[in-house]
């Protein structure tokens, strides 16, 4: 099982490389402000994802220097596979919940 903050990070990095602050903003936008990762939670989760090999840090280029030295992160193939596995697992849980009439209301679905 992948912890939720790490999964959110992997999903955020699925389509584009992002630095920490951009990941936080992206997650907030995609969840309509329901999920906001603070700096502590965000960077400890980034550290976990880096250690697990799910993401990798991109080398700083001269073009990144205007971004105040922030590092960008990229999803690795292992990270993509891990996210797909976890999402498939969650999908199964949702299907089970639907069968048990536990599905959340549509307007509350993220």
């Amino acid at each position: 099982m992948i912890p939720s903050p790490v999964l959110y990070i992997l999903v955020s990095l699925a389509d584009e490389d992002r630095h920490g602050y951009a990941i936080m903003q992206d997650i907030r936008e995609r969840t309509n402000g329901r999920v906001v990762l603070g700096p502590g939670g965000l960077y400890t989760s980034l550290q976990r994802a880096l250690r697990a090999g799910y993401i990798r840090e991109l080398p700083l280029r001269s073009a990144d220097q205007d971004a105040r030295g922030r590092r960008a992160y990229r999803l690795t193939p292992e990270g993509r596979k891990a996210a797909q596995r976890e999402l498939a697992r969650l999908d199964n849980v949702i299907r089970m919940a639907r069968r048990g009439n536990l599905t959340p209301a549509t307007d509350r679905e993220w």
Partner: peptide, 16 residues
């Protein structure tokens, strides 16, 4: 180790 790697980024995040 964590501070050395992320302290600047976290400070930057907080400042923003």
């Amino acid at each position: 180790e964590f501070r050395a790697r992320f302290a600047d980024e976290i400070s930057d995040y907080i400042a923003l």
